[in-house]
Amino acid sequence: MTTFDNWRKSSYSGEGDGNSCVEVAISSSRVGVRDSKTPARAFLTFPPEAFAPFLEDFKADAPR
């Protein structure tokens, strides 16, 4: 199991309800994603080669 100790909150958190977002952490072989409101609960992991295309698609669909 991969252990992450470098979680960081999305730069899009902004003001107001900034806790309603995701946090990511990166290891040498996995990218972790968790809910910032419940960081002690389960999280998802992805191989970097799967996470990068996901981010590109997400950014392409994000409102500007």
Results as ranks from 00 to 15, higher is better:
residue 53 P to D: 02
residue 57 D to A: 13
residue 22 V to T: 14
residue 16 G to M: 04
residue 37 K to C: 11
residue 50 A to V: 05
residue 24 V to T: 15
residue 16 G to T: 07
residue 58 F to Y: 13
residue 3 T to P: 01
residue 28 S to T: 13
residue 8 R to Q: 14
residue 35 D to G: 11
residue 24 V to H: 01
residue 30 R to V: 09
residue 28 S to A: 14
residue 55 L to M: 15
residue 45 T to F: 11
residue 35 D to V: 10
residue 24 V to R: 02
residue 29 S to F: 08
residue 15 E to K: 08
residue 38 T to H: 11
residue 9 K to T: 14
residue 16 G to I: 03
residue 54 F to A: 12
residue 46 F to V: 09
residue 27 S to T: 13
residue 64 R to A: 14
residue 20 S to R: 09
residue 40 A to N: 14
residue 29 S to N: 14
residue 18 G to C: 07
residue 64 R to G: 15
residue 10 S to R: 04
residue 3 T to Q: 08
residue 27 S to L: 03
residue 57 D to S: 11
residue 6 N to Q: 08
residue 41 R to G: 15
residue 61 D to V: 02
residue 1 M to P: 13
residue 14 G to L: 08
residue 46 F to P: 01
residue 15 E to Y: 12
residue 22 V to Y: 05
residue 26 I to Q: 10
residue 48 P to Q: 10
residue 33 V to Q: 03
residue 6 N to M: 01
residue 25 A to G: 15
residue 41 R to N: 15
residue 47 P to E: 14
residue 10 S to C: 09
residue 42 A to M: 05
residue 55 L to E: 06
residue 34 R to K: 04
residue 20 S to H: 12
residue 61 D to P: 00
residue 37 K to M: 09
residue 22 V to Q: 07
residue 20 S to V: 10
residue 4 F to D: 00
residue 29 S to W: 07
residue 40 A to L: 12
residue 28 S to L: 08
residue 35 D to A: 09
residue 28 S to V: 05
residue 5 D to G: 13
residue 5 D to Y: 03
residue 12 Y to R: 14
residue 12 Y to H: 15
residue 32 G to D: 12
residue 12 Y to G: 00
residue 60 A to K: 11
residue 51 F to N: 02
residue 24 V to L: 14
residue 31 V to W: 05
residue 42 A to G: 13
residue 8 R to C: 01
residue 17 D to A: 05
residue 60 A to N: 10
residue 36 S to K: 05
residue 23 E to P: 00
residue 33 V to M: 11
residue 33 V to N: 03
residue 24 V to Y: 02
residue 11 S to D: 04
residue 56 E to W: 00
residue 34 R to A: 04
residue 54 F to S: 08
residue 35 D to Y: 08
residue 8 R to K: 07
residue 16 G to L: 08
residue 9 K to I: 07
residue 52 A to L: 14
residue 52 A to S: 12
residue 5 D to V: 05
residue 32 G to F: 09
residue 8 R to Y: 05
residue 40 A to M: 10
residue 59 K to D: 13
residue 29 S to L: 08
residue 2 T to A: 15
residue 30 R to N: 11
residue 26 I to C: 10
residue 15 E to F: 12
residue 58 F to Q: 06
residue 15 E to C: 10
residue 32 G to V: 11
residue 4 F to A: 01
residue 43 F to I: 04
residue 45 T to W: 09
residue 27 S to Y: 04
residue 10 S to L: 07
residue 17 D to Y: 01
residue 55 L to P: 08
residue 40 A to D: 15
residue 43 F to E: 06
residue 16 G to V: 05
residue 41 R to W: 05
residue 56 E to R: 09
residue 6 N to P: 06
residue 40 A to T: 13
residue 64 R to K: 13
